[in-house]
Design a protein around this nucleic acid. Structure first.
Lengths: 230, 230
DNA sequence: GCGATTAATAGTGAAGATGACTATAATACT
DNA sequence: AGTATTATAGTCATCTTCACTATTAATCGC
């Protein structure tokens, strides 16, 4: 079979919820092209490796985390995106819970950092476009999917939940209206008795009643629509 | 550079608006694997070919149309999806205006047909999953994006627009409420004077005032969210 | 202890959107 | 002329949203 084969890589736009806003994981490239420039963490896909497996591997290499929220974003194939030649990149978005773990540098990267997601430095390849699109998608999915509960502990307050939304959306939300909407949209059970004592007035604790995760191939969730990348 | 290379193909879930409902373009495979089975039209990507270019080529080969609405859907990479070995498939959704053109068969396919989109026959590979996901995405994007105007002539009636929605959604819509919502959501200008005479009472003609298409790399539209595939 | 302060939660009301219907209009068909 | 058919307008109760105000239950600084 003389099938054409192309170089395939994954790039991960990994966001974390820091106290002062949303952060984006970046690595400083050691090798050409774009040596010395900031870039999204990424890597080539091994022949027997799944795409999401490669994305998880890249993420684990840099953050040590293995169970982050991860979702395929878009496949970029502009022939000019890599000066070495045509490389097709499958981009993923990831979201980590707070606090962001210390990032680990490695063989191909001289430095790793959490950059402010809204004002990242110039990035290598087409990674600015990928990062912009990833952030948009994250904000959108937050409204339609139980994404927020993936980065919260099992028991959380409305304040915790609100802070996830505020950080990802980058703007403050009305606490009262927010709670009403969350209680209407999701199945949230108050944890009886227990209260959270971090604030002045103790806050109720809730847990999210989600459907059990279906094993096997990914099934779409009930909500969500897509759009072309930036 | 000893980069691993993988076989890359595109598959297109192409829908058309027939009088009796939404239809899905299928080809009957001539070659193994799955010889004799129905499948989505698809093909391998040439080394210097863009992914969306390959999708358009596949579409043009079967339908003769070159300017259909086309959008990248998801990249499927289950190692078991092709018994010959690992093939990564970038799936696209397409929507054609009514009436669906006569499909052309070709070298690799013995037969081409428009199957009912809601009840397609069993399909080769993971194409049922792709088709299911594609139909869902189409229905979602219809609400958020000006997709419908891409498959309508420049001047159309509310009835035409409603029929596009009804066909894709697969259910009837209230004509009065529908018109109110469309006029609120989109920028629709009535064409002065002219009327459509296909129905009893002549209907107003509208045109959609869309922003000019931005040349260059695709920018995301303002709306839309994504979700993992079925 | 005690009042000031802070965050959580409840409630309120205007404005807007939705969905089911009713009503009227303009034509073609017979 | 009368009727069937589709287009378009209007009504109304219900629901949501959003910007506020109000109340509550703690902690903090004295």
């Amino acid at each position: 079979m003389n099938v054409v084969r192309v170089a395939l890589s994954v790039d991960v736009a990994c966001f974390a919820l820091a106290a002062d806003g949303l952060r984006l994981l970046l690595v400083r490239r050691r090798a050409e092209p774009f040596a010395g420039a900031w870039a999204l963490p990424g890597g080539v896909v091994a022949p027997d490796e799944r795409l999401d497996g490669a994305a998880r591997r890249v993420l684990a290499e840099r953050t040590g985390l293995r169970n982050a929220y991860l979702e395929q974003l878009y496949t970029f194939d502009d022939p000019a995106r890599d000066p070495r030649g045509r490389t097709v990149a499958v981009a993923y978005v990831a979201l980590l819970p707070a606090p962001p773990p210390d990032p680990h540098s490695g063989r191909d990267v001289s430095e790793v950092t959490w950059a402010p997601a809204t004002t990242p430095p110039p990035l290598a390849f087409d990674h600015e476009r990928i990062a912009r699109y990833a952030r948009r998608r994250l904000a959108q999915k937050l409204e339609y999917t139980p994404l927020a509960f993936r980065v919260l502990p099992a028991r959380f307050t409305m304040g915790d939940l609100r802070q996830v939304h505020e950080t990802v959306l980058g703007r403050p939300l009305d606490a009262s209206n927010f709670a009403r909407q969350m209680l209407a949209r999701w199945d949230l059970a108050p944890v009886p008795g227990e209260r959270d004592r971090r604030s002045r007035r103790p806050a109720r604790l809730y847990r999210h009643i989600g459907e059990e995760r279906i094993p096997g191939p990914p099934e779409p969730d009930a909500t969500g629509a897509e759009s072309p990348p930036p």
